[in-house]
Design a protein around this nucleic acid. Sequence first.
RNA 1: GCCGGGGUGGGUUAGUGGUUAUGCUAAAGGACUGUGGAUCCUUUGACUCGGGUUCGAAUCCCGACCUCGGCCCCA
Length: 405
Amino acid sequence: MISRPRGTRDFLPDEMRRRRDLEKRMRAVFERWGYEEVATPTFEHLELFTLKSGDAIIEELYEFADKGGRGLALRPELTAPVIRMYINEMKNAPMPLKLYYFGNCFRYERPQRGRFREFWQFGCELIGTDTPEAEAEVIALASTIMDEVGVKQELHIGDLAIVRDLLGDLSQEEQSMIMRLMDKKDEAGLREVLDADIADKLFDLIEARSCDEIEALMGASDEMEHLRRVLDLLDVYGVKYQVDLGVARGLEYYTGVVFEIYGEGLGAESQVCGGGTYRLIPLFGGPDIPSTGFAIGFDRIMEIYGLEPEKEVRIVLVSTEDTREEGIRIAGVLRKRYKTYLDIMQRGLRSQLHFADRWNADYAVIIGPKEVRDGKVTLRDLESGEQETLTLDDCLEILAQRATA
RNA sequence: GCCGGGGUGGGUUAGUGGUUAUGCUAAAGGACUGUGGAUCCUUUGACUCGGGUUCGAAUCCCGACCUCGGCCCCA
């Protein structure tokens, strides 16, 4: 027997219905905010992901050579591919671009709850600006999506521009390492690599919970005003957040405001969304324009998603040996509007109704010799067990009434 | 990559060294001949894999694989 590769999943009908329902709800929010969907290939040239990613990301890549010897990789995330797409073919589109996407991504990692080797990301990129208005919109959008799908969220907002002001003298590598330590809230580690006064200040900064506290430590600056404006706008959006300059994000291309959202009800993998402002476009050979975006861990939302999919009407069309052909004709009419199952096993009446029960059908429409003779159908409500024989038009009428009731 | 818990039919479960591996559920067929959920009968179907200990292993030991949880990293 051949099993699934490790860290992958099969989605059975019940779960798939719930996934599609969640997808639909999230997609609807992006659409209502004026974002448009795009899709990129499942695999890309290896360099797209190795060019500006840390070793950790590269180690997790599913990479391979194709039959022509090209180095390729399954995408580990979607920001880089979307930016690549923008540079390749959307440079003349009117700014700003508001794009969203939903797709599977691949990382060679140790699987656990909420972490898989194949997983799905929803996300968006707002390309062309890093104004406070843009950043506030993107954060508010992320937060709204969480609300709309019933996730209890905790939103943390940081700002790498401010942190980098403090670390300005240090090299790129040192800054990256410090970001990582900050993310882990590793005080001892930070004290090891930093001068005592900078370490003290950095730690106070991580503890700061308001702009005033930060300004008291760092003094006034353009970055400070920028962050203040973003937070003011979030207040207007009605978004609840917590200032947390310890949010450092793993990726090195973030430059400004960054944020993470944690969901309630998950284990170790509680981060359900992360994003911020970055400058990735020039790194890939495009113009020096900033973007803001985020990615949502779709599978993690699935774990804590409490809403039930919309009820669908399921009908089983029951016919007999003599009436199969009439059954197919009537099923054709029902199928214009409803999910209709038609027996193809040459089963008897009893057996077809048994199947209808197991299939959780709402109604059985029975077409036997009597019905065919009278030009009628029998509509049986499988929940109440009540049934009546009536014309097809009347049957459709009743189904339509019940569906809206 | 590291540290723990766990793997018995499709799902669930009994079985801690000894006949043909238990029950429930499911699926297929039947009893019941124009009506599902009940009952009964038949059939299908499992010890994750590989070593070791033993006269004998689902059971004890080791390893691998998978899985669950944690570290790391992130979505």
